[in-house]
Write a protein that binds this DNA or RNA. Structure first.
Lengths: 231, 231
DNA sequence: GGCCTGATGTTTGCGCTGTCAACATCCCCT
DNA sequence: AGGGGATGTTGACAGCGCAAACATCAGGCC
């Protein structure tokens, strides 16, 4: 039985296959019915094979969250490189954050939901989470140093900004997931337009509007309003 | 066996007992290991008795979320009655919202997490969710009518405000739940002070700071800053 | 080449879970 | 008084997480 069937004894890349299957499964049927056995079945492997790669169910979810934080870190980094003025950079980081959440809702939920009760057993996850946060913080620091943002302890400003983008992200995801749950017109104001050219139009406005509370410089504020189409 | 043991055949108030046991269990051990059988055991009742009150597991979680929205509705209502100016009312509603989330994290997570994949089978839940949202919206409408908030479609303003308080609430809850997960000093800026007199001090500042982006009237903005201790 | 060690996948088994169906008990209304 | 609906019980079944013991493979060492 070495070559007749293309199933080798060893799968080859089971770990990644399981993670991808998990995302697909959660997207399709929610997080409730997710079972390692089902993932194993989908990967064409014995029911307990996943335990060679993940100590338990939580560990698999933690791996998903870790991937998410690393991807978010990259996305934030990509938004910053442009070298624009700090207020614009903060804006772009916020928009990118929301866009990442919108396009990876499953991982985003692992990162910030409460399925992973405790991060402490997962060192890689803790590091990835802290890393992505620090990257956002550095952008805020520049804005503070340039006097464009209202004076405020960096940690507090970081918390406020994070809360802002996290809240918008949560609603964008909710808008996609259960349009039935809340009044339609509210979600419409925040749901990304489906037309290709204006994806994320409303989330951009949300980020800009709430960011305005943090901006000190009137010119920067006006520029932000113009860029986001608020005026 | 009618009176010797104090266990009657009928429990009396099993439904509410199960809901309370569920909250306790989730608070203690997270949402993962929650089982109807364990709840039944804790209530001193047979393993399948819960099915007389909840069609299935999801229905129990939905009932928790419904309770949550109704309580949130009351809390928002209580914040509004004062008859203060609209900007202050919006501020108080926001602070109350965050405070509700902080003190009822389990229900809050049922309301906005993704454990309940789809609200549509649960009519009561949908109505409760919409009701609490409408109450917040009415306060915003008054602020708009008075010209104290920047002109903006009501639905969009509602979405922005909701995103703001939802984001802050999420971080406050995270701060309580897994202090290990993220850099300590960020959480400290948002975590309610434990000293009795200053509970919610930092969340108040967060609400005020982000709200400032929505306020049009400069006097109202200054008053808001002063009230929240930003100046 | 031949072997040995560690990584990966399999089999078997246990106790727990969600859910269904059939049955028992009790409360309330007529 | 007694019948019907609400509530709780018992028994059964498949599926799950997880632990051991076992099988198969790959790559380095002689």
């Amino acid at each position: 039985m070495s070559c007749a069937e293309h199933r080798a004894y060893h799968h080859g890349d089971l770990r990644q296959t399981l993670l991808e299957a998990a995302v697909r499964h959660i997207r399709a049927e929610g997080t409730e019915g997710l079972s390692l056995r089902a993932l194993a079945r989908e990967a064409g492997v014995s029911p307990t094979a996943p335990y060679r790669h993940f100590e338990n169910r939580q560990a698999l979810l933690a791996a998903l969250a870790t991937e998410g934080f690393r991807e978010l870190d990259e996305v934030i980094g990509a938004a910053v490189v442009a070298g624009a003025d700090p207020v614009t950079q903060v804006f772009l980081v916020g928009v990118s954050y929301v866009e990442y959440a919108r396009t990876h809702p499953v991982k985003y939920h692992m990162m910030f939901g409460d399925l992973i009760g405790d991060f402490s057993p997962f060192a890689e996850l803790r590091e990835a989470a802290e890393g992505s946060y620090r990257k956002m913080e550095r952008v805020l620091e520049a804005g503070l140093a340039a006097g464009l943002l209202k004076p405020c302890p960096l940690a507090e400003l970081g918390g406020n900004t994070w809360a802002m983008v996290h809240g918008i992200a949560g609603l964008v995801i909710a808008a996609q997931r259960r349009s039935e749950a809340f009044p339609g017109e509210i979600l419409d104001t925040i749901r990304p337009m489906q037309a290709q050219h204006r994806v994320l139009e409303a989330p951009e406005r949300a980020v800009a509007r709430l960011m305005l509370g943090l901006v000190a410089d009137p010119d920067a504020a006006r520029a932000l309003e113009r860029r986001a189409g608020l005026t």
